[in-house]
Structure formats: C-alpha cells, structure tokens
Design a protein around this nucleic acid. Structure first.
Lengths: 203, 203
DNA sequence: CCTACCGATCGGTAGG
DNA sequence: CCTACCGATCGGTAGG
C-alpha cells in the first residue's frame, strides 16, 4: 500500500461525516481517529472541503464500479428482480454509512450531488425505465407504472430504509433486516408486475 | 399575539436548521434573520440546544394535532386510502422543511427522535397495522404484507420523496409533485390490496 | 432588548 | 509528520 495514511484519513472522515455530518465533524477529531495531528492531515488534503470531495468521489467511484456488476448479475435467471433489490439493499446494509452519507449530501448540497449522481446514475435509470416500458408493451408490467418515478421511490425505500433503520425498527429484532429486504422486494415487485408470479413464496 | 418575537425565532430556526442543519446554523444568523442581536435570542431560548428542542417540539405538536384529522377524515368514504396518502404528502409538501428537519434529526440524533416520535406515532402505526391484519383476515389485503414494515416503507417514500425532491426530479417539471403523489399512491395501494380496485384510473 | 466581552474551538498557515 | 501559532467565529455571560 503506497499511501496508507491518506486512506486511513479517508476512512475516518467517511465514517465521521456519516455519523455527525460535515459541519459537526472537526478536522481535529478526524486527525485523532487516525492518530496524527491536524496539520499532518492538511498535508494530505489541503482543506476540509477537499477532504469532503475526496470522500464523496470515492463513494461514487465505488458505486460506479459495483452497480454494473449488480445489474448485470441480476439480469441472469428468472428471479433477477428479487436479486437486484436484494443486492442493492445488501450493498448499503453492508455499510450503512454509505446511505447516511448520501442522505446528508442530499440535504446539505442537493445541487452538487445532483450533478455528480446524475452523471453516472442517469444511464442506469434510463435502462431500467426502458425495461419497464418494454414490459408495459408486452403486458408483463402494469400499465399504471410511471417508470422514472417508480424507480426513484424504490431507491427511496432501499436507501431510506437503511439510513433510518435505527428509528423505524429499533426493536433489536435480528430478523429486522431480513423482513425489510423481503417487504421492500415484495412492494416493488407487486407494484410493478401484472402477475404476482411468486406470491406463493410469501403466503 | 402575546410573544411574537419568540415565534419569529422559532420560525427562523426551523427554516435554517432544515436548510443548513443544526451544526451548520449559528445563533448569529438566526438572530439576524429575526432582526435582533444574539444575546436577545438567548433571552428567549437559554441555549442553542433548548432552541433545537423547542423547534422539534412544535413540529411534533403540529403533527400530533393534524395527524388524527387526516386519519379520521381519510376513514370516510371509499377512497380513504388514496385520500390518506395524498393528504400526508400534501402536509409535507406544503412545507418541505418539515421533511428535511425530520430527516436531519433522524441522522443527527436517532435515539432522541425515536423516543419522541415513537411516543405519539406508535398508536397510529398500531392502528393501521391492525387494519391491515383485519384486511388480511377477510382476504381484502394481500397475505404477504408485513404490516409494520410495509407502513414504515410507505412513510419512507412519502417523506423521503419530499425531502429529496430536488435531486430525484429536478427536471423543473411542474407535474413532478402530482406524478409523485400518483405513483406513491399507486405503489402503496397495489402492494397492499388483493384487488386493484381502481386500476382503470391509471390507464 | 442592547453593548461589551469571555474562553474555547474552528479551519488553516509558517516553518522546520 | 511535527510544534507553534493565526484570525475568525462559536455558544454563552455580565451587566444594564
């Protein structure tokens, strides 16, 4: 590893920004988490704003790399829709700070995020929307579906569900995550397809 | 109006906390927005934390008053489900800062919000969950629905949709709000009821 | 409701 | 990667 300290800083900033927010996190506490002094941190990232952008850029790069894998993997087999939803939830659930960081950026800098996110997310949304419209043509998918709005709402359930997990199912229930995955998948599938082709699974 | 300045402070704090977050908003800028000096603000609210709690308390009181009205009004007539979803969206859409403030609190202080919110929201969620379970008994509602998890996901779509409106449909489309209302209602209804009893409406 | 002021902490720089 | 330090701003207080 050629520059491990810079990555440690990035990791700490990622976690702390997600937990306490950008304004609620001082460079001092990030430096402490890494075990260095504040000026040393500022050698690697010349300002707090630069550090924020680096954290966000790495998150976006990660998604840009993983998303195509998830989507193409989910295109194989019959249960591709279940697989897609489950994998996206798993991705965020593996590290909830991803979802929280995203939500904080949406609230703090909607314009900046819209630009960055729209850049690489738009093609995938267009792809999925096309798939929906084709399904509407063949009668597989409900005519009433508003493709883009439908997609944004499923994303909303997935990411929002992870980001707010503490509040909505703070029951300490170990099966909470599994129930959330099952229900989001069920809602998304039932609202999309004409035939509840797998309803027997959830009777 | 007996103490208009205290309310002006509350309004300004509400708006600024929602826009910039608690840590991103200084008492100075709140005081400026009201047209007074910082020490005068601290006469009405003895600390920043007290002001935050007052803002949150007023929001909760507002919901505690309006929510029963929406729910009981929506219990009248056949299309009560559509009415319920539409009214809740309308409530948040009338002032999106309500949704953003809620989301910031979820991220900043999940435990505190969970306690406050759970206190008065739990009975309503239990009521709706009971309604769902009864509907499952009579065959009106899909057997696969996980009542509490379903409800939290619909809330997620409604509030998240309002809070993140800028990012997801920043197309400047005037019909965006209407499309969002229609699609969330459609998703929620289709995923809940066995019969798509109004599908003819959506072409 | 104000002026004046407090110690603490902020992001960031100088200089090595 | 550090010590030492900067001006600006923070939440909050004294005192009227």
């Amino acid at each position: 590893m050629e520059d491990s300290v810079a990555i440690q800083i990035l990791d700490a900033a990622n976690r702390l920004f997600a937990e306490r927010g950008y304004d609620g996190t001082s460079l001092q506490v990030i430096a402490e988490a890494v075990g260095i002094r504040k000026p040393s941190l500022l050698y690697h990232y010349t300002s707090k704003a630069v550090l924020r952008d680096a954290v966000l850029a790495r998150l976006m790069d990660h998604w840009a790399e993983v998303l195509p894998q998830i989507l193409s993997a989910a295109t194989t087999g019959e249960n591709r829709f279940e697989a897609l939803v489950a994998e996206v939830i798993a991705f965020f659930d593996a590290d909830p700070s991803r979802a929280r960081l995203l939500y904080r950026e949406i609230l703090d800098r909607p314009n900046e995020l819209s630009l960055r996110l729209g850049g690489f997310l738009a093609p995938w949304i267009a792809l999925l929307a096309d798939y929906i419209r084709r399904g509407q043509g063949t009668g597989l998918i409900r005519a009433g579906v508003d493709p883009e709005v439908y997609i944004s709402n499923v994303i909303q359930m997935v990411i929002g569900g992870v980001a707010t997990a503490h509040v909505f199912y703070a029951m300490g229930d170990d099966s909470a995550v599994e129930r959330q995955v099952l229900e989001v998948t069920r809602i998304a599938r039932t609202a999309l397809f004409v035939n509840d082709y797998l309803e027997g699974n959830h009777g």
